[in-house]
Design a protein around this nucleic acid. Structure first.
Lengths: 225, 225
DNA sequence: TCTTCGACGATCAGGATACGCATGTGCTCT
DNA sequence: AGAGCACATGCGTATCCTGATCGTCGAAGA
């Protein structure tokens, strides 16, 4: 899962970045509206944390530009305390949620989780596909009820696939969402992790679609003859 | 837009109902968890406003039951002030948003708007022609509901034809869109892939227009005798 | 209207190739 | 020291392109 933070205050921004990274997200940090807008317009994010009080370009403006460009990633807006008129304006400008400063980082994470879950169409914190069960809250994976130990990258990859169950996910899409920005595309790490996951969870969890990418299917969703 | 309110306190409940109705929503009001759960399970709502502090059955329980039943309407949870642990629990139980009491009704409406927009704003990515169905998001193709396995090139070609349904597409146009820039024009790869697609999806999906190219027609669009 | 012929499209099969898989190796961070 | 990761290499195979042959359509002439 790839997150963009647009926050002009370096202390808070870096703290958020660290916290989110510890929670398994790939995080990019932007310190002003212009750069933030550019990042959000050109890169693929699963969610954006946007501070409204930015120098130069206002956060609301950035948000409006994104929405007019057709960018529809979930946006969590950070507002000053008690300015609920700002919040309403933000929501109407296309924000999906807001959080008043100061806030508990724990709450930020819970809200981000909910946002991402909602955006990808899953209501429960548990994702299932066949015998595989993934709890996004605790970060645990089980196979037929038996707990399975996954490494960080394996978990990220599986998690992204399960969030997009049934969809064909290209290699580049996976790379973009698992790693942040600069990463050597000419490497086969994705294949390697797919192999590892298959070893741990069974070869049939992840389907390869040659020339397009990978796909994780729930047999229950495909009543075929 | 149809809204369900589950709120045990009559004063607040009726006030909400009135306000929402004034804003153009069709509102049902439930005063306890059991009835509320029943309503949400049997009727179709575009969004639900759920109070967590209910007598008999707790709001979180109701929410959990809905989600387990596969109900995925957006849920806005009402919590007591300052109990952010409740909020986190609610979000993790499958709520899409929350609001702490007391709140501005204006804010409630703004949030509901955002919720509904988010839930219904996902445009369909499906193209159909006769019995053939192509989901551009998932990269899946089905024939009469049965999944059909296409190779990358076959998929690209079919996808382009379905995006230009009813139009005659020349061979060169297909080549230009399937391959990048320079490609040997003196080859019959297009014909080969058309043949393969016809084998998998039926000969009548793609019509040949001699001397011009190919065309994919939806029989539904051509009500002829 | 029927037949014939030319041109265009459809089909087939074999070799080339890119693709994805599964190793192994060394680096880095705990 | 160990685990996890990025990266490199070799191998097997599905997929693709090519070129040749076969089939079909349609126009022109009888």
């Amino acid at each position: 899962m790839r997150i963009l933070i647009v926050e002009d205050e370096p202390t808070l921004g870096n703290q958020l970045k660290t916290t989110l990274e510890q929670n398994g997200y790939a995080v990019d940090l932007s310190v002003d509206g212009e750069d933030g807008h550019f990042m959000g317009s050109t890169e693929e994010y699963d969610a954006v944390v946007l501070d409204l009080g930015l120098p130069e370009i206002d956060g609301l403006t950035v948000l409006g530009m994104w929405r007019r460009e057709g960018r529809n990633f979930p946006v969590l807006v950070l507002t000053a305390r008690d300015s609920w008129s700002d919040k309403v304006a933000g929501l109407d400008a296309g924000a999906d949620d807001y959080l008043a400063k100061p806030f508990q980082t724990e709450e930020l994470i819970a809200r981000l989780r909910a946002l991402i879950r909602r955006a990808t169409g899953n209501a429960s914190s548990e994702l299932t596909a066949g015998d595989v069960r993934l709890d996004t809250r605790s970060g645990r994976v089980t196979l037929k009820g038996e707990p399975v130990k996954l490494t960080a990258q394996e978990y990220k990859l599986l998690s992204y696939l399960m969030h997009h169950k049934g969809k064909v996910v290209s290699r580049t899409e996976l790379i973009e969402h698992i790693y942040d920005q600069d990463f050597d595309r000419d490497s086969n790490t994705i294949e390697v992790f797919v192999t590892r996951i298959r070893k741990k969870l069974g070869a049939d969890v992840i389907t390869t679609i040659r020339g397009l990418g990978y796909s994780l299917d729930d047999p229950a969703d495909q009543p075929r003859g």
